[in-house]
Design a protein around this nucleic acid. Structure first.
Lengths: 151, 151
DNA sequence: ACGTTATCTATTGATTTTGTAGATTTTATG
DNA sequence: CATAAAATCTACAAAATCAATAGATAACGT
């Protein structure tokens, strides 16, 4: 499960992506439309700014804008920033690699082999999907949400 | 990231799967070999038992055995049992579906569309990989851990 | 100068995670 | 039957994480 924070971040960024006009979007507006606690959102936007995803303008007519085109900000990038490593095991993370202390031999760790595949698939989706892609999807992809027999 | 608990559970089950002989494996042995806190492991094994994954024998010569063949216990099943839903969003979980209160319209929620793909891919791997599969993998799959440019 | 907006720092409460501790029950075996 | 070895059960606790709140400060446009 991704964190609430990550959901908020992605939804906020989506709003910025939609409001392309070059005019900043303000926190109170995002908070209201997306039902996000205002002060909480402030912190999140700050994180996004420090990471270089958005830029801010202060004072009247201020607010936030994407720093890059929406097509060049991926879900993976955002998710990693907010929730940390994408990989399901520390020893599979690229940005925060850490050996599992209790695990002898990564090359014959079964867990690692299995979850390496999960990590690969997950990254393939998340880093190939940009904010722009996501916005373009819904209308097209509307087959009645195909469900397999598993979670 | 999967929980420590889940790692322990999977490693313990792996030991049971390997020790096929029909002779029970005991908690102290698992705990020592896998470096798992013994009392913590006890709780985990109880969960696995209650869920019908393993059976137990008490008293001397007691211990735990798989209740089904190792080829019929999947990583997905174990992970869901221990860590909860596989899906990254409550509204994508099959076993614990929950509407996102702050989200209007699931069919046009961008987050949902993107993470639905993640969920599908993840489940495809986890539910198609059994304990037996995982044990069989390591020796074969030993190309020097292919890494993409992303986490 | 004024109000509006982002920025910063600190703190709180709830929940989850990761364990510990100790008493109890069951069972094989001598 | 007595004993020791094993699982079982219940409760608790420390630490970390998450979600959110509070209040003061700095920058900017008009």
């Amino acid at each position: 499960m991704i964190s609430q924070r990550a959901k908020y971040a992605l939804r906020a960024l989506s709003m910025l992506a939609r409001s392309n006009a070059g005019t900043p979007v303000q926190i109170p507006d995002i908070a209201e439309e997306q039902k996000i606690p205002k002060k909480f959102l402030e912190q999140i936007m700050l994180d996004l700014k420090r990471a270089g995803l958005v830029e801010s303008r202060r004072g009247k007519q201020g607010g936030y804008l994407l720093q890059r085109p929406a097509s060049e900000i991926t879900y993976g990038e955002v998710l990693r920033l907010i929730d940390g490593p994408i990989a399901p095991l520390p020893c599979l993370s690229i940005t925060a690699y850490k050996r599992c202390e209790d695990c002898r031999g990564e090359s014959d760790c079964e867990l690692r082999h299995v979850f390496a595949r999960v990590a690969d698939e997950t990254r393939a989706v998340l880093f190939s999907t940009s904010l722009a892609d996501a916005i373009a999807m819904p209308s097209n992809t509307c087959e009645p949400v195909e469900r397999r027999s598993n979670d």
